[in-house]
Amino acid sequence: MSGHSGAPVTIHPVKDKNDRREFVELAFRLNRGDPAWVPPLKGEVFDLLTPGKNPWYEHGKAQQFLARRSGRTVGRISAHIDELALAQPVEQGMGPGTGNWGLLEAEDEEVAQALLVTAEDWLRSQGMQRALGPLSISIWDEPGLLIEGFDEPPTIMLGHNSPLYRPWIENSGYRPVKQLKNFAVDIVDGFPPLVNRIVAAGEKNARIRIRRVDKRQFDAEARLIMGILNDAWSDNWGFVPLTDSEIAHVGKKLKDIVFEDLIRVAELDGEPVAFMIVLPNINELLIDMDGSLLPFNWARLLWWLRKPKSRTLRVPLMGVVKKLQNSRMASTLAFMMIEFIRRDAVRDYGAERGDIGWVLDDNQGMNAVAEAIDARVNRVYQIYDKPLA
């Protein structure tokens, strides 16, 4: 990060394709020296920012800004408002009057503060009374600022940022409201005896069936899983429901990295009541692709996707329907899905480690599951807010 030259910082709204390209490229320039930063595929970032490509814009609006100094782009931020988040109950973290910001990158603190002030002004102009961030557009994209776990590259769908951003944000009047944890667990040798006993008892229970997803019925399976998700997570802090078009979009995006033996649906008395999604860590490949599939990276990617060998697998989502939560059945189903996938992952993908996250700091059920399988916290993300009065 370079010091500033005394020249003033000016802020410009992103207006066209060229601005958007600058917005995307800046992250590459500022993070290139960080060995743990995984360059995203630029096409994916463009899609995230583009109405018509990202169905979030069907219920949200956003304005991106660039910071310039002496003609150079030195920072960026996105300010955004999600109509579905505004409709949530206040005690769940979002609610009326709460706007968001995210995708912050800045060369120094002066730039960061100027960008935050601009995002807050935009939110205020839209009638917002509180700013909550960072969120990379939606709570379902990359929520939170990394505050612990800078040493190793993140796994798929986890964010990474400079450790300098935390003091810059806190000096701008933001206070922490929620932490999201990511757990790492060694999976080669299996889980502690207690977990194995619970799984063995579950396997004898005729009411329970744990099945793989059927990729030939991909759209129906995606709808089924996201239906459980919308129910399972509906009381969680920060929850915003996924719309049908977002579910279809997520399905399309993940279709190539979805493997039948890494996703399980649990049925109780024939009714689907829980699911667990595990993804191979494509970041192991992306880290040296510099954001582009050209000229030869697409061939590497396709080859890898045929049968990925992935040292780490990530569990981005699991859920149990609300009516079973906090029951012994819920933890039995969770342990069974985790163990069944673990066996296949070690045997067929060469996996050594699982990553489970994000887990809300007050999600007692998931924290207890993580503890029972001897998982340790390896990354912590923090979400902040600030009144805009």
Rank of each mutant, 00 (worst) to 15 (best):
D141A: 14
F183V: 07
I287S: 03
D214M: 02
P143V: 12
R311S: 09
N100T: 11
A351D: 03
N18M: 09
A368I: 00
L388V: 04
R211Q: 09
L254P: 00
E109R: 12
G291D: 10
E352S: 06
D355P: 00
N196W: 03
N378T: 05
H160T: 00
W101H: 08
I383R: 03
G75W: 10
E44A: 12
P295T: 04
V258L: 13
G99S: 04
E58V: 01
N171R: 15
G270Q: 11
P176I: 04
F275E: 04
L302S: 05
G291C: 06
V74K: 09
V9Q: 08
G133A: 07
P134A: 10
L164E: 13
K253R: 14
D362C: 03
Q126K: 15
I247H: 06
E142F: 06
R264Y: 05
T50G: 02
W37K: 03
L132C: 09
S292H: 12
D219T: 10
L26S: 05
E152V: 07
I139P: 00
D121N: 15
K309V: 12
E170W: 11
P134K: 10
P40V: 10
D16P: 01
V213W: 09
M226Q: 05
W233R: 10
I139Q: 10
D256R: 14
L26P: 00
W37H: 08
L84N: 13
G60W: 13
A351Q: 03
R264G: 00
V195H: 10
W233Q: 05
A389C: 07
P8Y: 03
A119C: 02
L305K: 11
T118S: 13
R197W: 10
M94L: 03
H12I: 11
E110R: 15
E109C: 05
G238P: 00
I81T: 04
E120A: 13
G149V: 03
D231N: 15
P96E: 12
